[in-house]
Nucleic acid binder design. Structure first.
Lengths: 339, 339
DNA sequence: TTGAAAGCGGTACCAG
DNA sequence: CTGGTACCGCTTTCAA
């Protein structure tokens, strides 16, 4: 079933059918109705590939995401949900391509073969060759997260530095003096993963500002790693009374580790950080934390991207989010010495 | 940059370039090299839309998933990850389209406009009009989950009925007599959501088989709902000593509710069920549960789908998974009376 | 208000 | 081994 067939049955030309559909040229009421009737009868829908070829646009947006060999974190997945939903609202589909290993191949396929009209990049590194590449080509794109030098690109990001800083302040205000910081994995940190890096920077800056002491730890993205991390913290720095974490996937293990060590939250140990609401509320006591507004970030990413696509001449915008810290039940004053 | 330009610069015809690329016709070594050199110089990549139009296939698979207004469950998201990854391994991209509200529109767009070569459906209802529709059209598709009458369709599913049954048996073997079942939301259950329905069936069958008593509860997908649900259980059936849950998103709240009521797990209350490993290990004590092998199911779905696409004449296959229950720390014998 | 026809960028058949 | 060309299905310009 194609447009020619519809035209034949309606007794008009193909172009008239096309115009009746697009409305880009006036079509008399009676022919329009006749055409519409045939279309309904036949259940005709125009072929997307043909349309894309003729129009030069696919009405699809690309989403490039990490190799993620084993498992995705909640956050990554939530972004995807937000992006797909927001794109749908604008009548765009989302095309996902992992193509892991090869850094380029992933979006070379999406962009090079013109499968999509624009791209969203996640899991940004401070030095990210993909971003450089895209910036050079002029292809519309947006990053969730930002590089070390994001000028001239469109991005949406969480202000990890200041969020972590606020967490430290919060603990400082409560009277804590010795803190630990639970970061993402060693591997991610080393590879210049931006949120891990900026979170760490925030921790260090905050220590200086407040005069507190503290140490940063890296931790893999699972419960077992969280347990190990706590053990490490407790054994190497028994004086720690407050923990700041940006590793939500290890949160459950972190709590368990503390429980196993006989440390009650928040009586013996305060815990705070950045985490999706889902995780913050799943643990007991619920975590005082800044939320990852993943859905909203997805929405913003789409808005920025559509803007790039529609008005490429305008300078790229960005948005840095600093959600407030939601007080729940996991922080309190440090235990009184000798008690 | 298109194939004509490459042909011109290499001094050959367009068809020769095409054949050099596809290998579907012998091309002399020297012309092949010449062509390849030009392609490399120009950074040429064939246009996907044009290719799709000419070949009649898009090399993209569709993923239709629920409106999911607010948030997706972990499980849904994990499926997506698994599917995308598996598809990538076969050189297919995955096109996602939510198009919420309208039940049909979602895949009418993907299928009707031939944006994809095959479709994966999730969030299946026992009576699912989308499945009927697709079955009629003969378009290749696979469901994650199955309808009440899945004959002749390709699907991969978890055997909720038997998994829940095993959970009940496990508690029965430990000596429990009074159980509660925590299902997904009332709304999902009513709408014929298959896993909710089949899980409930399993619970009822198991009670009959074992002679235990028990009641089923519905629960929304969040921690707060989990807390409420526990309160309800404890007040309406104080004799309950074992809980079976298939609602992982409420798990944290369920644990908290028990803690607040002064019930220790597993001393005063055993808890078991079906849950992604991530959640099962996040709670303390870790949950004895059957895992949702989401990644694997995604992989299987892709395999089945490609099979449908390549050999539509062969009868549709399916796969029913019954992962074993992983013993962790949340179940034990019931408290001794009067102790 | 409508029709004819030239693309869009590939693929693959028919000839040579 | 290679070239010419019809065609995939739709959009849009040109002409009437």
């Amino acid at each position: 079933m194609n447009i020619g067939e519809i035209a034949r049955r309606a007794g008009v030309s193909r172009s008239t059918v096309s115009y009746a559909l697009s409305g880009k040229r006036p079509v008399s009421e009676k022919t329009r109705r006749r055409i519409q009737r045939v279309i309904n009868e036949m259940g005709y829908q125009p072929n997307a590939s043909a349309r894309a070829l003729a129009r030069g646009e696919t009405r699809a947006l690309g989403m490039v995401f990490p190799p993620a060999s084993s498992h995705y974190t909640d956050m990554q997945l939530a972004f995807i949900g937000g992006v797909v939903e927001a794109a749908g609202a604008h009548d765009y589909d989302v095309l996902m391509s992992p193509r892991g290993a090869d850094v380029d191949a992933s979006f070379q396929r999406l962009v090079g073969e013109r499968r999509v009209d624009g791209v969203i990049l996640m899991e940004i590194r401070l030095q990210d060759p993909r971003v450089e590449r895209l910036r050079d080509t002029g292809f519309p794109f947006v990053t969730i997260g930002r590089t070390g030098n994001p000028e001239g690109t469109a991005w949406v990001d969480l202000d990890y530095l200041n969020l972590v800083r606020r967490c430290v302040r919060h603990l400082s205000d409560l009277g804590h003096h010795h803190l630990a910081f639970v970061n993402r994995s060693e591997k991610l940190l080393r590879s210049g993963y931006e949120s891990a890096r900026r979170g760490l920077d925030g921790f260090e800056v905050a220590l200086q500002e407040t005069g507190l002491t503290g140490t940063a730890y890296t931790c893999d993205d699972d419960a077992a790693a969280g347990e190990r991390c706590v053990q490490q913290i407790l054994s190497s720095q028994p004086e720690v009374t407050g923990i700041v974490t940006i590793n939500e996937a290890s949160l459950g293990g972190l709590y368990r580790g503390l429980a196993d060590a006989g440390r009650k939250i928040p009586r013996d140990m305060s815990v705070t950080g950045i985490s999706a609401e889902r995780w913050a509320e799943a643990v007991t006591p619920a975590l005082t934390a800044a939320a990852q507004p993943a859905l909203e970030m997805g929405r913003i990413a789409i808005d920025l991207l559509l803007e790039r696509m529609r008005t490429p001449e305008k300078p790229a915008r960005h948005q840095l989010l600093t959600p407030r810290i939601v007080l729940r039940a996991s922080t309190g004053p440090p235990p009184v010495l000798g008690e």
